[in-house]
């Protein structure tokens, strides 16, 4: 089912316009010629996931696995805020977040391949420096 989920995810990102960095930056450009359409992507995705996660809260286990593996942390730590802020800056520069970057790999853009490569390097670097930054 991971494959099915991935297929739906990739198709949805492409259909929704998320794989076009120009559209993403136009969505983030609220003081310019603002293109609000990507708000509809998030909005309609949440229309599906809200009732589904309400079901998850009432269910004992998933259909094909032993248990749900959900994040358990509740605290707001500096790493969450700093990490999200850094991510937002990178997102604004390139107009790509991790999902659309991956979904774009089939289109064969060498620039986006570079983005994905340095993105993995960034994740690795975070693990290497976690002892310093907390």
């Amino acid at each position: 089912m991971s494959l099915v989920s991935g297929l739906l995810f990739g198709a949805g990102l492409a259909l929704g316009g998320m794989t076009d960095p120009g559209k993403v930056v136009a969505f983030l450009d609220v003081t310019g010629a603002w293109d609000p359409s990507l708000a509809f992507v998030m909005g309609s995705a949440l229309l599906v996931t809200f009732p589904v996660f309400a079901w998850v809260r009432r269910s004992a286990r998933p259909l094909f696995a032993e248990r749900f593996q959900l994040p358990t942390r509740r605290d707001l730590d500096p790493q969450l805020l700093l990490g999200a802020a850094l991510f937002g800056i990178g997102w604004g520069i390139a107009g790509l977040c991790p999902g659309p970057a991956i979904a774009n790999l089939g289109a064969g853009s060498p620039e986006i391949l570079l983005f994905v490569a340095t993105m993995v390097a960034g994740m690795w670097l975070r693990d290497r420096t976690a002892a310093i930054t907390g």
Binding site: L86, F87, G90, A94, F115, T118, M123, L125, R126
Partner: peptide, 28 residues
């Protein structure tokens, strides 16, 4: 897709996105 930055911009943005999402436990 319309790219928004050059090679260097993409490399730096990717690095920041990777570092930030790993540190902040997630993305969009």
């Amino acid at each position: 897709g319309r790219l928004q930055t050059d090679w260097l911009g993409m490399a730096i943005a990717g690095l920041i996105v990777g570092y930030g999402t790993r540190m902040g436990s997630g993305c969009t």
